Every structure is written in structure tokens, then in C-alpha cells.
Amino acid sequence: MGPLSLLSFVLPILLFVSPSLSTNSEGNALHALRTKLSDPTNVLQSWDPTLVNPCTWFHVTCDRNNHVIRLDLGNSNISGTLGSELGELKHLQFLELYSNNFGGKIPKELGDLKNLVSMDLYGNKFEGGIPKSFAKLKSLRFLRLNDNKLTGSIPRELTKLSNLKVFDVSNNNLCGTIPIDGPFGSFPMESFENNRLNGPELQGLVPYDFGC
């Protein structure tokens, strides 16, 4: 078989295989996440790494190209920590992990999920600060981090998220002042209550994180 004939034979195979290869990397990322979690009610029992892609798993939604676009694990009695592997879900639009027992820090790699529209991490035990990398999530409309154990200040970088419609960090242990630029001018004060925050920043003054 000559070089051209071989190429014409191999190329269609590569074109056929490549979509499953990309989604399999997403499946690998999700399985890596599963290994870190405690799942007493077997919510994740369908997450079988031997399958071609994760689109047949429960609580996972894919688009027509078999890319993971939604992860729904809200109120599933799951505990454990999140790792950098979630940053591999490049097509993810909805990350729903609310009302569980997740702990540890929120991975900065979540800021790599450029297509993310909604991130619900509320009602867990996350600690540490809000990652500044979230400022890269230009499509983000809903960010709910309330009812955790987050500390530090609200990153000023988040004021660049022009599409952000809902932002809730109530019932944490955040400190400093509340930004007023960008979308933060429209969020109700209830979104910030029960923290150690010192109220909105004053117009024209350099923000100062009192007590942080």
C-alpha cells in the first residue's frame, strides 16, 4: 500500500476516533474526581471508567458532540475534596455541587471552565479563599458560594464578570469590603450577609480590606 493509499485509509479512522478520545479525557477527569469522594448512597455507581465516554453516566449531561456540559450532584450526600481534574471539563456549562459535604479549598482550575454559565457550590464546607481565577469565567451568570466556610476578601477581579446576574456569598467568614464596580452594583446586600464584611466600598476611594 502506497503512502497516499495508507493516508486515505488511516485519516477517516482518526476522524472517527477523535471525538471519543476527547470525551474519554473528560471521563478520566470525572473518574479521578470520584476516587477522592465518599459516596455512601452510591450516587456515582454508574461512573464506569471502562466505557467509551461518560455520557451514559447518571448525573452527567453531554451535548451532541459527546462533550460533558452539565454535572448535577446537588444534594447527594457526597463528601470529599475537589481537585484540578475538574478543569479538564472544558465544555462544562453547569456545575451543580450544592448541599453536600465537600470540604477543602475550591480549586483555582475551575477558572479554566470558560463556558461555565452557572456554578452552585453552596451548602458545603469549602474553606480558604474565593479563587481569583474565577475572573476568567466571562460567560458566568450565576455564582452561589453561600453557606460554606470561606475566608479572605472578595476578589476585586470578579468585578470584570459583566454577565454575572446572581452572586451569593452569604453565611461564610469573608472579610474586607464589598466591591461596587461592574455587576456588584446590582447585587442585594442579602448576598453578603453573615460574614465579617465591612460594607460596600465608598465611591472613589481605594478599597481597603479591614481585618483580612
Score class of each variant (00 low, 15 high):
199 G>Q: 09
17 V>S: 11
106 I>S: 02
22 S>K: 09
105 K>C: 04
97 L>N: 05
175 C>R: 11
115 N>Y: 10
52 V>H: 00
45 Q>S: 15
69 I>L: 08
108 K>E: 08
21 L>T: 12
19 P>K: 07
52 V>A: 15
68 V>H: 05
72 D>S: 14
128 G>P: 02
54 P>L: 01
89 L>D: 03
153 S>I: 04
139 S>K: 15
13 I>M: 15
108 K>L: 09
186 S>D: 14
35 T>F: 00
106 I>E: 06
30 L>E: 09
207 P>M: 12
89 L>N: 06
207 P>G: 10
139 S>I: 01
110 L>R: 01
184 F>L: 03
77 N>C: 03
54 P>Q: 04
125 K>Y: 15
9 F>P: 00
143 L>M: 07
94 F>S: 08
52 V>W: 02
78 I>M: 11
102 F>C: 02
75 N>C: 06
70 R>P: 00
131 P>S: 06
111 G>R: 00
190 E>T: 15
11 L>A: 13
180 I>Y: 05
208 Y>L: 09
200 P>S: 10
191 S>I: 03
108 K>T: 05
51 L>I: 05
91 H>W: 14
118 S>L: 10
204 G>F: 08
14 L>K: 10
37 L>C: 12
171 N>E: 04
148 N>P: 06
210 F>I: 15
137 L>A: 05
167 F>Y: 13
128 G>M: 01
84 S>K: 13
79 S>C: 14
151 T>F: 00
180 I>E: 09
57 W>G: 01
150 L>N: 08
105 K>I: 05
110 L>Y: 03
81 T>H: 06
201 E>Q: 13
68 V>P: 05
119 M>I: 14
55 C>Y: 04
171 N>W: 11
15 L>W: 11
42 N>Y: 10
90 K>Q: 13
63 D>V: 03
65 N>C: 02
190 E>S: 15
207 P>A: 05
97 L>V: 05
84 S>Q: 11
27 G>C: 08
194 N>V: 04
212 C>M: 04
34 R>Y: 02
149 K>P: 00
151 T>N: 09
190 E>K: 10
19 P>H: 07
174 L>V: 09
124 N>S: 02
25 S>R: 15
126 F>W: 08
28 N>D: 11
149 K>Y: 02
